[in-house]
């Protein structure tokens, strides 16, 4: 299975992976509309910086995913492609997955009315190569077999 390989030596801290992720997961998939018209989705990757280091981290799609184990109602599940994804209609925002994720890559989206929403990398189901990988100008993110 291919996942996004993180080459931190090439990360230039431009945040374009986050931008691409937001656009990909927006309704319009249009960069201007996603940022200025819609309620902007949360980026699934997170860029960290500690001079001179920077790197973007997103879900590693574990074989034995602790987030799935911890999920109280199966919202966190493995899809047909083998990636760990959240069923947005089921997620109740209990943050058990946040507590379980050994990579710390599940983010909290608290903007829904009743339920919170765990937000994580879904490896872009509508694309061959995830948006962040395509956007990365310096090949710091590569979609590779692991």
């Amino acid at each position: 299975m291919k996942i996004v390989k993180i080459n931190e030596d090439n990360c230039i801290y431009c945040h374009l992976c986050e931008v691409a992720c937001v656009v990909e997961h927006s309704q319009s998939k249009d960069i201007i509309k996603a940022f200025k018209r819609e309620e902007k989705p949360t980026a699934r990757c997170g860029v960290e910086f500690n001079y001179p280091l920077s790197l973007s981290v997103m879900c590693r799609h574990c074989d034995d995913a602790p987030c799935m184990e911890a999920c109280q109602n199966g919202a966190m599940h493995r899809d047909d492609r083998g990636y760990v994804v959240v069923n947005e209609d089921k997620c109740v925002g209990c943050w058990m997955c946040v507590m379980a994720c050994p990579y710390g890559v599940i983010k909290r989206d608290t903007r829904r009315d009743v339920w919170g929403l765990s937000t994580k990398c879904d490896s872009c189901p509508d694309r061959d190569v995830p948006a962040c990988v395509e956007a990365c100008p310096n090949n710091a993110l590569m979609f590779e077999e692991i």
């Binding site: 602790p66 987030c67 946040v98 507590m99 379980a100 050994p102 710390g104 983010k107 909290r108």
Partner: peptide, 13 residues
């Protein structure tokens, strides 16, 4: 702020 809590979970485990 409970972000990245799982990383501590991993360290304990």
């Amino acid at each position: 702020n409970i972000e990245k809590a799982g990383m501590f979970n991993w360290m304990i485990q």
